[in-house]
Computed example of a mutant assay.
Amino acid sequence: MTIKPEERDADLSPPAQKAGGAALCRIILSEDDPIIRERLSKLISAWQDGLLLASCGTLAETIEAISTHDFDLLITDLNLPDGNGIEAIEALRIARPEAQAMVISVLADDRTVLNSIEAGATGYLLKDADFTDLIEAITDLMAGRSPISSRIARILVKRLSAGTPETSLPDNGPKLTDREMDILWGISKGFTYAELAQRLEISRQTVPVHIRNIYRKLQVSNRSEAVFEAARQGLIKL
Rank of each mutant, 00 (worst) to 15 (best):
L176N: 01
R179S: 15
R199K: 15
K158L: 14
Q219E: 07
L156S: 01
S161F: 12
L160H: 15
R204G: 11
A162V: 06
R212Y: 09
L160V: 10
Y193H: 13
I214E: 00
K217F: 00
I183T: 03
V157E: 04
R159H: 15
M181W: 10
S168Q: 14
P170N: 08
D171H: 12
F191D: 07
I183V: 06
P165I: 06
R216V: 03
N222T: 01
V207R: 03
T206G: 08
D171Q: 14
R223E: 07
P208Y: 05
L169Q: 14
L184S: 00
Q219Y: 09
G173C: 08
L160F: 15
L200F: 06
G190H: 04
A194W: 02
S224C: 13
R199L: 12
E201M: 14
F191T: 00
R159S: 14
G186M: 08
Y215H: 07
V209S: 10
R179P: 10
S221M: 09
L156T: 03
S168Y: 09
I183G: 00
L184G: 03
P170I: 00
E180G: 01
Q205R: 12
E180M: 03
K217G: 04
L200R: 08
V220G: 06
A162Y: 14
D178E: 11
D178P: 08
S188A: 07
R223W: 07
Q205T: 09
W185C: 10
I187H: 00
V220D: 01
E180S: 08
Y193A: 09
K158Y: 12
R159L: 09
N172Q: 10
I183M: 10
D182Q: 14
V207P: 00
G190D: 02
T206E: 02
R223M: 11
Q219M: 12
M181E: 01
S224F: 08
G173P: 00
K158C: 09
V220K: 12
R179L: 14
H210C: 05
E195Q: 11
P170G: 03
S161Y: 11
T167W: 13
S161I: 06
S203N: 11
I202V: 09
R179N: 13
T164P: 09
E201C: 12
R216L: 01
F191P: 05
R216H: 10
I187R: 13
S203F: 07
L196F: 03
N172W: 06
I211G: 03
E201V: 07
I187S: 03
G190T: 03
P165C: 05
I183A: 02
E201R: 14
I187A: 04
Y193L: 10
D182C: 08
R159T: 12
E180K: 07
I211K: 15
W185P: 00
K175I: 08
E195K: 13
L184C: 02
